Simulated scan of single mutants.
Amino acid sequence: METWVLITIAAAFLQNIRSVLQKHLKGVMGTTGATFVRFGFGVPFALVFVGLLAFGMGYPVPRPNSGFAGWVTLAALAQIGGQALLIQMFSHRNFTVGTAYSRTEPAQAALFGLIFLGDRLNAGTLAAIAITLVGVVLISVARSASGAPALLRSVFSRTSALGLASGTFFGIAAVGYRGASLSLDGPNFMMQAAVTLLAAIVLQSLILLFWMWLRAPGELSRVRAAWKISALVGLVGATASFGWFMAMTLQTAAAVKALAQVEMIFTFASSVLVFREHVNKVEIFGCIFIVAGILVLLLV
């Protein structure tokens, strides 16, 4: 099995753990604070990754260039934008439908990767993206009272627009991170990913810190009070992001994001095994589609 596949599956698993931990944080702080924790408390661990590679393994630290600065800034801002749109959907009806549209990220990443980086995908990879997308949509709308028909009827609704826009931003972010890492041109995919991660989350942390200070100063004290679980979120989140960046240095963003849909299965398993939630047939079919799409992706 290829290296990028193993790394992506591990990153998806860690991202699911981070999401579960962040749910606990939502009980003690607001959305802005919980979002900041993901980045701000990850900075020390990103520094550790770079340090271990540089001093522990002897890899030279690549010198950032203007191309790197442009790509990483675009990706960092796009990721914050995508997250903000997802959060905005919380206040709208039929949130699950919007979430389903946001999961078009791999398809959009394929388009942006072709436009900006010249990444070309074969027919098998495109088919895999389509199959996993169907699975994700099924799981997303399985517990919605209106179900799949609402997904079609709501094409021009505000919620679906927010979901599609969120997927667009996340797709741009994925391609941007791949562009940033590749622009470093060595010494290897691990160091390139580590430096990209460090630059991105430092920038994101500063932006969110300034936003909290300006708009929600009370969040700062709540973040400090929950520093223990926040540090755990930072560790898991930074490690997951390191995995994403390594995988996207080795493979196209679209292929990585298509395989990353396996996270939905991990989330599904968590809801059943940890939270003891009921499973319905639509969710099972969704998981089958995701697994089928991943198998197609791995076999082409």
Rank of each mutant, 00 (worst) to 15 (best):
E105M: 14
M190A: 15
I294H: 06
A161W: 10
S102W: 05
D185L: 12
G33E: 01
Q83N: 13
L203I: 12
F41M: 13
V279H: 08
F210E: 00
V223L: 13
G33A: 04
F49C: 11
Q261D: 04
V223E: 09
N65V: 04
S166T: 04
D185T: 13
R215K: 15
F49E: 06
L220A: 14
F112T: 01
A200K: 01
V272E: 08
Q22F: 09
G186P: 00
W227V: 12
V236L: 05
Y101E: 00
M29W: 10
G51I: 09
G218M: 09
M1G: 13
W4P: 00
L208D: 08
E105I: 03
V256Q: 09
A174N: 12
L298S: 08
G40W: 07
Q22W: 11
G243V: 09
I229C: 09
W211G: 11
V195G: 08
E263R: 06
A12P: 03
K23E: 14
G113Q: 02
T31Y: 08
A174R: 06
G286A: 01
T249M: 03
I131R: 02
A254Y: 01
G218P: 12
A269V: 15
R158S: 08
Q108D: 07
T196Q: 02
V72T: 00
G70L: 07
W244D: 00
F41L: 09
L151P: 02
V37G: 03
A54R: 13
F41T: 07
L297P: 11
L295T: 11
K281I: 13
P64V: 15
V262C: 01
A142K: 01
I7N: 02
F55W: 15
I87T: 12
S221N: 14
A238Q: 10
R93T: 10
A165L: 14
L117F: 07
Q88G: 12
M29C: 12
V236T: 15
T3H: 12
L162R: 01
R63E: 15
L273G: 05
A12C: 04
L6C: 06
R158K: 12
L250H: 05
F169V: 04
S166Q: 03
A258F: 10
P149K: 04
G51Q: 07
A11C: 06
T249F: 02
I229F: 08
T99Q: 09
V279W: 10
A109K: 06
L214D: 12
E105P: 02
Q15D: 05
F268P: 01
L235A: 07
E277T: 12
R276L: 12
P106D: 09
A123F: 11
Q83P: 10
G218H: 04
A110I: 06
A292W: 00
L117R: 05
L208S: 12
I172F: 05
G70Y: 02
M57K: 14
L162P: 03
K228V: 15
A255D: 07
M264D: 09
Q204N: 00
W244E: 02
R222N: 12
V141I: 09
